[in-house]
Computed example of a mutant assay.
Amino acid sequence: MLHAIIMAGGSGTRFWPASRRATPKQLLPLAGERSMIQATRDRLGAVSSADRTYVITSKALVDPVCEQLPELNAANVVGEPCRRDTAPCVGLAAVLVAAEDPDAVMLVCPSDHVIEQHDRFAEAVQRGEAVLKESPDAIITFGIRPSYPAESFGYIQQGEKLAGHDAFAVKCFREKPNAETAKEYVDAGTFLWNSGIFMWRAQTILDALAKLEPEMYSHLQKIADAIGTDSYSETLQREFEAIDGKSVDYAVMERHKEVVVIEAPFDWDDVGSWQAVSRLHPHDEDGNAVVGSHIGIDSKNCIIHARPGHTIVTIDTEDLIVVQTPDATLVAPRTSEERVREAVAELSRREMTELM
Score class of each variant (00 low, 15 high):
258 E>M: 02
320 L>M: 10
294 H>I: 07
339 R>K: 12
344 V>G: 10
346 E>I: 06
39 A>T: 04
349 R>M: 00
155 Y>T: 14
128 G>S: 10
334 R>D: 12
75 A>P: 02
204 T>V: 12
317 T>E: 15
184 E>H: 14
347 L>K: 08
230 D>Q: 09
60 A>Y: 13
66 C>S: 09
123 E>P: 07
348 S>Y: 12
30 L>T: 03
276 A>C: 01
224 A>F: 10
92 L>H: 11
36 M>K: 02
177 P>C: 03
297 I>S: 09
120 R>I: 03
267 D>F: 10
306 A>I: 03
292 G>R: 14
353 T>Y: 07
26 Q>P: 04
120 R>S: 03
124 A>I: 00
173 F>C: 04
285 E>A: 04
22 A>D: 15
51 D>I: 00
83 R>P: 02
168 F>R: 09
82 C>A: 11
241 E>A: 05
28 L>W: 15
232 Y>K: 13
30 L>H: 06
246 K>T: 01
93 A>Q: 13
208 A>W: 11
40 T>E: 06
316 D>Y: 12
248 V>A: 11
326 P>E: 07
14 R>F: 01
165 H>P: 04
42 D>H: 03
168 F>C: 05
200 W>Y: 15
244 D>P: 03
118 H>G: 06
26 Q>W: 07
80 E>Q: 14
168 F>T: 14
271 V>G: 03
203 Q>G: 11
99 A>T: 08
258 E>T: 10
27 L>H: 08
137 D>I: 04
127 R>H: 02
217 Y>C: 01
289 A>L: 00
284 D>P: 04
338 E>K: 08
132 L>D: 11
243 I>L: 01
187 D>K: 06
6 I>V: 12
289 A>V: 00
284 D>I: 09
80 E>M: 15
201 R>V: 06
178 N>P: 00
287 G>C: 09
29 P>I: 07
335 T>E: 08
290 V>K: 03
27 L>T: 10
288 N>E: 14
207 D>S: 12
125 V>R: 01
177 P>D: 10
250 Y>C: 04
28 L>V: 01
278 S>R: 12
